[in-house]
């Protein structure tokens, strides 16, 4: 009996140790200032106001220097265990996907169903954006590169890593060489900060955003009071209490709230949870929101909810219906 217990304990410990957190995807995206100042932009008139947006397709088709920088960064990041999503390929895939979705038919003539939201979601995305900007400056006969690389968490909109500065001026070196030198020079500093971010994530949980909204068909609003856990509280306060219990070290901030919405930021969710089979499985914002939805489906609320995923780091729970 003792041996069986020891065996089972060893197996469960091994499973916990083998659990892997969901790996964030990373993509190098040229900064807006780079695209616009180099002419890779497009103008729109929205509500009578002219807007200038970067034209990434034009940039990848014309800018050899940026392609060189992206290639160099991708090679270095792949060596560090993070193969990058390639912006150029991603743009091509999206165009191809759109054509295939439009052309695909079932044997009975059925077409693929796509809501406006599905179409909106079909954009190039990554969990971490490496926002890159550089320009070659002249000082007399010498050239040097100003380099600015920022790591942005796509969901919390926080800068999680960065490296910036100017390279050594040179009279002889070509701009491509100066650019390559800048990438090599700054990438270790950037990765050092990225590693600090990951270490913090493993220690204090993944930082995500969570929003609760309501369909107009919902039977109650977020100021309604319920008897819950032997106490009478507003719906919003009950959600606060649930978050405090389920977040890592109870860390979250309610940044806004009304009778129709609750908005939470800096929600630190655990990276793993125990599945029904006893295994440690990786979770993201959607998995965490699903746990809250399960609570809302039970009495005293007894209400259907829709969980809307926005990448690894943001989820919405829309109360009222699926």
């Amino acid at each position: 009996m003792k041996k069986i217990f020891l065996f089972l304990a060893t197996i469960s410990l091994s499973l916990a140790a083998l659990a892997q957190a969901k790996k964030p995807t990373i993509m190098v995206v040229p900064s807006d200032v780079y695209c616009i100042s180099n002419g890779f932009s497009q103008q729109f008139i929205a509500n009578g106001v002219e807007q200038t947006l970067p034209d990434y397709k034009k940039m990848v088709q014309n800018d050899r220097n940026m392609r060189l920088a992206i290639t160099k960064l991708a090679a270095i990041m792949a060596d560090r265990g993070f193969p990058l999503k390639d912006l150029e390929q991603e743009l091509k895939n999206l165009a191809q996907e759109e054509a295939e979705v439009a052309a695909m038919q079932g044997k009975e003539g059925g077409e693929i169903v796509e809501s406006p939201i599905d179409k909106l979601k079909r954009t190039a995305k990554a969990d971490i954006i490496m926002d890159l900007d550089f320009n070659v400056q002249k000082r007399g006969p010498q050239s040097y590169v100003n380099f600015n690389l920022r790591g942005l968490d796509a969901y919390t909109a926080k800068q999680i890593a960065g490296a910036a500065g100017s390279g050594q001026p040179s009279t002889a070196a070509a701009p491509e060489l100066l650019l390559e030198e800048a990438v090599i020079s700054y990438i270790d500093e950037f990765n050092g900060r990225l590693q600090s971010f990951f270490e913090d994530m493993f220690k204090n949980g993944r930082e995500v955003k969570l929003q609760l909204k309501r369909f107009n068909s919902a039977a109650f609003d977020f100021e309604e009071e319920f008897d819950y856990d032997g106490d009478t509280k507003e719906f919003g306060d009950i959600v606060d209490a649930w978050l405090e219990k389920n977040c890592v070290q109870g860390r979250f901030s309610r940044v806004d709230g009304s009778s129709n919405m609750l908005k939470y930021e800096q929600v630190r969710i655990p990276l793993f949870k125990e599945s029904s089979s006893g295994r440690q499985t990786a979770i993201d914002a959607r998995g965490f929101a699903n746990d809250l939805r399960a609570v809302l489906r039970k009495p005293p609320f007894g209400i259907d909810c829709k969980v809307y995923q926005r990448g690894l780091g943001e989820a919405w729970i829309v109360v009222g219906e699926k």
């Binding site: 040097y144 020079s185 500093e189 590693q195």
Partner: peptide, 14 residues
């Protein structure tokens, strides 16, 4: 440390 156009490099063992 950084210098002469090179950015600082963090320690390998953090």
């Amino acid at each position: 440390p950084g210098g002469n156009g090179a950015a600082p490099t963090p320690a390998i063992c953090r």
